[in-house]
Amino acid sequence: MSARTEGARAERKLGLWLAAPAAVIMVAVTGWPIVYSFLLSLQRADLRFPEQQAWIGFENYGTVLSSPYWWNAFWVTLLITVVSVAFELVLGMLLAIAMYRTLVGRGLVRTVVLIPYGIVTVAAAYGWKYAWTPGTGWLANLLPDGTAPLTEQWPAIGIIIVAEIWKTTPFMALLLMAGLAVVPEELLRAASMDGATGWQRFTKVTLPLMKPAILVALLFRTLDAFRIFDNIYVLTNGAQNTSSVSIIAYHNLIGGLNLGIGSTMSVLILITVAIIAFVFIKIFGASAPGSERR
């Protein structure tokens, strides 16, 4: 008995040793930038005033958290995240079922569905931008003369959301299709024998079994959507109050050369993302990936 535990312990030790180099590199490449930006967020660090660099505690946090621009960007980001992920989940599920159930031309259907996801976001965003530009764009020409939707806040946010949904629904569908594949065919057949309707089979059998896959898909997409950058950068670059938190952080960090304020924003984004992840795991509880109870 004890020999066996000792063997297990030795094996465990070896495992740790083998994993150590990877862990060390992970910490070095992800941990250090996080620590560094946290340290910068506690300083007045503006590249244009190198002599005025100083430790100022949490003053930057006060500045950012009391700025209407930050909160506007925060709510805009949240709105884009919630609306686009909700649409993506529904549309992605429909696409996933379509892709999973298609009997003829399965390869073709899957390829076609994945095209938007395969296009570089910046290139696709330019496509959308030109489509909505008055005079040259095919979509703008459908609108009454003299309307320039990208120059107004709400229409622009709407266009950003549409571009996001169009772009990433296939990714959602792909993740959900993997979930569909784990639902055993015999369970569905048994339910059908017991008289369950198609809708009942979907809500009572398929969905509960897919819960882990849905969680992963939602988590990935929510975190991704919250960090939205390229679509907005190309479509409006944050004009007319359409900045996301990443865009505003970029403007302060790279445009304003203000490392202190920019790093503060990065840290706040990290905290928000951590909260989102935590809430997801809490809601989905036991079915969260990595949890041992099933």
Binding site: D46, R48, T63, S67, G238, I248, H251, N252, N258
Partner: peptide
């Protein structure tokens, strides 16, 4: 807001 910007205080939109 220009006054804030001059001191590189405040947040850029």
């Amino acid at each position: 807001q220009i006054s804030d910007a001059l001191q590189s205080k405040g947040v850029l939109p």
